[in-house]
Structures are given as C-alpha cells and as structure tokens.
Design a protein around this nucleic acid. Structure first.
Lengths: 95, 95
DNA sequence: ATAAATTAGTTTATTCTATAAACCTAATTA
DNA sequence: TAATTAGGTTTATAGAATAAACTAATTTAT
C-alpha cells in the first residue's frame, strides 16, 4: 500500500474548496465562490486562474448589469483529477 | 457546511505520510520511514523535526551497533491532530 | 458635474514552504 | 589508508501562497 502522489494543484486548501464547490453545481460565479470560500478576491482570482490553466475549470467572462461577471465550471478533466485526488488521499487517511 | 481549516502541518504529503505510518505502529525507525515514504533523507529529517517541534511525534536518538538510530513515535497530540485533519478534509471530499 | 464609494476583479511584492544538494561524523571494508 | 557506507543535519534555492496594492468601470451622493 504505497502512498499515491497527491496532485499538487488540488492539494491546496483554497483550490480544493473551489473544485469541491464546483463539483456540486452546474456553474458558479466568482462572488459565490468568494462567499463560500471566504478567501480574498486576489487569492481567489489567482487560484481560479491556476485551475483554468490546468484545464480543470472553464472560465467565462461576461458582463451583467454593466459589471464584469466571471463564471466557473468544472471540466471533465477537473472531475477526473478530483476523483483521483480523493482516491489518493483516502490512502493516507484510513490507518 | 463551511470548510474547516486544514492543519497546515499535516496538509503536506510527506508529513501526512509520516503521521499516517506512525498511527499504525508502536514506533518507527528513520530507515523504516525512509523506505516507506521514498523521501530523501534530508527532507525526511526536516519534516520529522517539524512534527517533533509541534509535539506531534516524540523523537528518540540512540545508538545501535555503534550507529545513530532515530526512533519516532506519535504522541497523543499527534493522534488528535490527525483525527481532526481527517475530519476536516473529509468535508472537502464528499460532494 | 464631480467626488466618493462600490463592483468585480487582476497584478505584484513579500513571506513562507518544500526540497534537493551539500555537508558532517563516525564506522566499516578493501 | 583510502573509499565506501550508515545515519543523519544544515543550507541554499526555487516555488507556492497570500495580502496588499492596483485597475477600470459604475453608481450614488453632494
């Protein structure tokens, strides 16, 4: 029972929160993720970008009521990575 | 269901491996942890020291066959922290 | 009309962390 | 006596995390 590698991208509290939230919904707005994670805007912005660059989430930038609106949606790749992560870390948890 | 904080000390692959291994045994030698984790000696040494400084493990330094021998044992505080960590991260995993 | 505050983020600068590489001391073997 | 091995520790550097500062436009108050 060797330890499996933990995807460094997901092994981060905020990014894991984001993915965890996105798993449960069709898509989520920046503000929604901000409220749920209680992160700072800057940190949230950075971590969303990393997840986007990895292909784990799709980010759509539009406008609503004249204000910018950022919407995030987990990709198939993201779902897959999350499932692998859950499987891997489970190996660390059950003694 | 807010996200609980993940103890930064345990939210690290190698340190979590160490604790995970120590949970299952009475005590473990440096070499044993080295083999099981497949870490470098340097990194293992550093991370054991951090766990010791946090009071999560007791480290005993003796000699065997004239060679230094480092033995690690998880403390009650370490067990407690691990259980809290398992509880916290579980909240991220089940969608 | 213009100053102040709000929305919705991004960029940057700094601190913190992780890790490999280098090092150390003593013992053993060639 | 010179490598090699055992069993680690220390340090140097790269990378990651995050708060603070910034951008750009909109709305509200004066």
């Amino acid at each position: 029972m060797a330890f499996k590698d933990l995807d460094p991208l997901l092994h981060n509290q905020l990014r894991l929160s984001i993915i965890s939230l996105l798993i449960g919904v069709e898509s989520a707005e920046f503000k929604y993720l901000l409220d749920k994670t209680e992160a700072t805007r800057g940190n949230l912005s950075v971590q969303i970008t990393k997840l986007k660059d990895a292909g784990y989430v799709d980010v759509k930038k539009t406008f609503r009521n004249n204000y910018p609106l950022t919407t995030c949606k987990i990709t198939a790749k993201g779902v897959d990575a999350f499932e692998k992560y859950v499987d891997a870390i489970s190996g660390y948890l059950n003694k």
